[in-house]
């Protein structure tokens, strides 16, 4: 890990970044998310874990409205997510997302991937967007790949480009949906290091992951979900050493005890 990664994370503020109240979501008649209440403060690093199908992805995808909720309220950075498209666009330009399968644009170079949204959404001049992109590509330590196409990079490199691409929009909140679970073990570390560095700089992060080492290193809160509900949330230390519910214990014994 780098020096930046070893520094202590900055303190969490009182300012609310995401406020979710009594949120419910259904897929047809299937109740995926039940009465979710969640307040994320600026600067928080939250890790969300839980068994497969528990609704983790659905929850964080509701925050930038890749999924629509049917009941309750989601307010992101003061903007409520409703069917009003202007609000949706506003929230999306403030919230960055990193996907399990990277979802880079294969027909564009790494640099173009990073400058696309700043140029078209933020209307940043091309030159400036390219400078920003190079800045973040350096930060994720692959500036030399800028002219290549995503298909020519390794999985770990692609995921770091995806992180840089999201950062180029200068988001206030970053969402990660299992960013390392499609990667080979030797590439996981390079991506986690990048994320840790980001966390140490005070980025508000919501991260679905089963990398418990990451949770212990930087998270200030771990949320455990099961069957569409938030079952338990606590500091990483309490969460791992002193889980409260039976379901959490079972889950932890499965992922930690192999």
């Amino acid at each position: 890990m780098t020096d930046a990664a070893l520094a202590a994370p900055p303190p969490v503020t009182e300012e609310v970044a995401v406020q979710i109240t009594k949120m419910n979501k259904w897929y047809g008649s299937f109740h995926v998310l039940r009465d979710i209440d969640l307040t994320v403060y600026r600067g928080e690093r939250i890790v969300i874990c839980g068994p497969s199908g528990s609704g983790k992805s659905t929850l964080i995808r509701c925050i930038n409205r890749l999924e629509e909720h049917q009941q309750g309220q989601i307010v992101v950075d003061g903007t409520e997510l409703t069917s009003n498209l202007r609000n949706v666009d506003k929230v999306r330009s403030e919230v960055g997302m990193v996907f399990q399968h990277f979802n880079l644009f294969p027909h564009l170079t790494v640099l173009e991937n990073c400058t696309l949204a700043p140029i078209w959404v933020r209307k940043v001049p091309k030159r400036e967007a390219e400078e920003t992109a190079m800045h973040f590509l350096k930060k994720v330590r692959i500036p030399e790949q800028a002219a290549k196409y995503p298909g020519q990079l390794s999985g770990g490199q692609q995921q770091r480009v995806a992180i840089a691409r999201a950062l180029c929009m200068r988001p206030k909140i970053m969402l990660f949906d299992e960013p390392t679970s499609a990667l080979d073990p030797e590439m996981i570390k390079e991506v986690l290091d990048t994320m840790i560095e980001l966390a140490r700089e005070g980025m508000t992060m919501l991260c679905v992951t089963h990398e418990m080492g990451f949770a212990q290193a930087v998270a200030n809160r771990v949320i455990f979900m099961d069957q569409g509900q938030i079952v338990e949330q606590n500091t990483p230390r309490e969460f791992f050493n002193n889980p409260q519910s039976e379901r959490t214990k079972l889950f932890l014994s499965q992922i930690l005890g192999h």
Binding site: N64, L66, D89, R92, S93, V95, G96, M97, F99, N103, L104, F105, L116, A117, W120, V121, R165, A166, M169
Partner: peptide
């Protein structure tokens, strides 16, 4: 989804 998430 990537396009949506970037706010395009």
């Amino acid at each position: 989804e990537a396009g949506d998430a970037l706010g395009l």
